[in-house]
Amino acid sequence: MAPPLIFLSVSPGERRVALRRGDVLEAAFVERPHRPEGLGDLHVARVTARAPAMGGVFLAMAGGETGFLPDSEGGKGRGEGDWLRVAVTRAAQGGKGPRLAARPAPEAVTGPLRLLSRGPETAIRLAAQHPEATLVTDHAATAARLRGVLGAARVQLSSTPAFDEALEEAFEELAGMAVALPGGGRLTLHPTPALLAIDIDAGALAGGRDATAHRALNAAALAEALRQIRLRHLAGAILVDMAGMAIARRRELLPGLAPLVAADPALKLIGLTGLGLIELQRRRVHTPLHEILGAPPSPLTRGLAALRRGVAEAARRPGARLTLTAAPAVLAALSEATGALDDFTDRAGALALRADPLCPPGQEHVHAE
């Protein structure tokens, strides 16, 4: 089996990371330095309240966040006002703050609230998990920094964009909630505060398939659903509705699903509900992609994509005076994304901003005057 490759695309305000083995995308991450996920961060925090029903305590953290420390992770016996050294073990998501675990301190811990250290960025974490992988990036400063951590032999600086057309298309699909299936079928993902619902649509050809072909279609769709769950960092309670099939026939799919579930240590197969839905549960760790990108894409996501395209435009038109035309909400989101516009200026030159209230979503663009 070919060793995996880690691709790191660096653009103003954003880092996109892909792990690919051959032509198969195995992991996808989007990082925004002005709003880090925080996984692995080490904090000095203070207990603000005990939650007996939840089996833990709430802690105030630097930056105004509130984290939860379970009793099983060091919260037992802690009372209001106690200072602790804690690490973030689950990123904030779904409107809830980060999950924490207590960490031993070399001396007594006292205030103020503060961030002691950041956890490893995604590229470094993936490189540690896949020591055989080479990392390819298109940003010289990032390549130099990562070589200092991973060694020069493991980091390649590409003269072309780190993401090829296939990776760009894959990440564009991950920004939506529908996934095309072979034969005209489709997966549709519906995240809610309580659970994730996935609907499998067999497409227009479903009616012409015999029972064996229909079963194979659903089995393939379920495999793709599990892949999408992993790529998108979806978690919690998950229900999958298959395309047609009597409940008894749906049960026949569970044995074949078991080894696919076992390949994801965070995922657990619960079984079949009374309504014939496949029930899964996945441990929460990373922020789901739809919460980072928005669904549909947020003004910030659209603005950062425009800056990414703008860097490419500046490379094609060196010395040109560039203007970003976008809706006011997009420009406001970019202004609030600390460092994104400055990063563009450092890489591509001065950028004028032109607000266009009629600019449709997705039509934001950087152009030469």
Rank of each mutant, 00 (worst) to 15 (best):
I6A: 04
F7N: 02
S9C: 11
P12A: 01
G13F: 09
R15V: 12
R20S: 00
R21V: 13
R35A: 15
L39Y: 04
G40E: 07
A51F: 10
A51C: 09
A53V: 08
F58C: 10
F58I: 10
G63N: 04
G67N: 10
D71V: 05
S72H: 13
W83D: 04
R90S: 15
A91E: 15
L100F: 10
R103L: 13
P104L: 13
A105Q: 07
A105T: 06
A108H: 10
G111Y: 06
L113K: 09
L115C: 07
L116T: 11
G119W: 08
T122Q: 12
A123F: 08
A123D: 07
L126Y: 11
P131A: 14
V136Y: 05
T137W: 01
D138Q: 00
T142V: 11
V149H: 05
Q156Y: 00
T160F: 01
P161Q: 00
A166T: 15
E169R: 15
E172A: 15
M177L: 14
A178E: 15
R186T: 07
L187K: 09
L189N: 03
A194T: 12
L196E: 04
I198C: 06
A202F: 00
A206I: 12
A213G: 03
H214L: 15
A216Q: 14
A220I: 12
L222K: 06
Q228Y: 05
R230V: 12
R232T: 06
H233P: 04
H233E: 09
A235S: 15
G236R: 03
A237L: 14
I238G: 03
E252D: 11
P255Y: 04
L257P: 08
A258S: 02
P259Y: 06
V261C: 01
A262N: 08
G271D: 11
L275R: 12
I278W: 02
Q281N: 14
R284E: 12
H286S: 09
G294I: 09
G294P: 07
P296L: 05
P296R: 01
L300V: 08
R302K: 01
G303C: 14
G303I: 12
L304R: 04
A315R: 15
R316C: 09
R317M: 06
A320G: 05
L322T: 06
T323M: 06
T325E: 13
A326H: 13
P328L: 10
A332V: 08
A332G: 01
A333F: 07
S335K: 14
E336K: 11
T338H: 13
A340T: 03
A340R: 02
F344S: 06
L351F: 09
L351E: 04
L353K: 00
L358G: 10
H365A: 15
H365M: 14
